[in-house]
């Protein structure tokens, strides 16, 4: 839990800094895929491994996953429809039969209509989510953060002892 909280604080810190926008956008993309997947399956585990292995903002991924889960719940009928259409395509039947009878691959539960539908939709949309996230982070920093930093309130905060302690702590422990 501490680790997760730390990641979320880091995400807020990073979001308000001037670096790491790609890492945040990647985190949001991964969170999007995680959130859209209905249950724990092999691809979710793979995404988690990627999150741990590569320098992707985990806090962003967790927050995005939490947010997109609610959207996915409402989109279930759409995913079911898309998944059913794909799984019932005659041309793909031999391919699915091959996958279904191979080791490991069935663990992805690709044969489930919602898993297939949400998987296809989320993987196809994840690059778009990535680029949109990059744009939004940049815009957020330009408009909201800069404007906020120009306010009297923020200037007053920056002069306070608490903020000085915080910057000292930040420089020591990162």
């Amino acid at each position: 839990m501490t680790y997760i909280l730390k990641q979320i604080f880091q995400f807020i810190h990073l979001l308000n800094s001037d670096k790491g926008h790609k890492s945040i956008a990647l985190g949001i993309s991964c969170g999007f895929i995680l959130g859209m997947t209905p249950s724990l399956s092999l691809q979710s585990i793979l995404i988690f491994i990627c999150l741990f292995l590569f320098r992707i903002q985990i806090g962003a991924a967790l927050l995005a996953s939490f947010f997109f889960t609610f959207i996915a719940w409402a989109l279930d009928p759409l995913f079911h429809y898309v998944g059913t259409q794909i799984l019932e395509m005659e041309a793909l039947k031999p391919f699915f039969t091959y996958l279904y009878n191979k080791p490991i691959l069935p663990l992805t539960r690709f044969y489930n209509s919602i898993v297939m539908g949400s998987g296809v939709v989320s993987f196809l949309l994840s690059p778009i989510v990535y680029f949109v996230s990059v744009g939004l982070v940049k815009k957020y920093r330009k408009t909201i953060v800069q404007r906020f930093q120009g306010t009297k309130f923020w200037k007053a905060v920056k002069l306070s002892a608490v903020y000085k302690w915080y910057t000292k702590y930040e420089s020591i422990y990162g």
Partner: peptide
């Protein structure tokens, strides 16, 4: 139940 979807089976003969 909602969210469970429908499983499609692709068995081979003798699988």
């Amino acid at each position: 139940e909602r969210g469970k979807g429908k499983n499609h089976y692709f068995p081979r003969k003798n699988s």
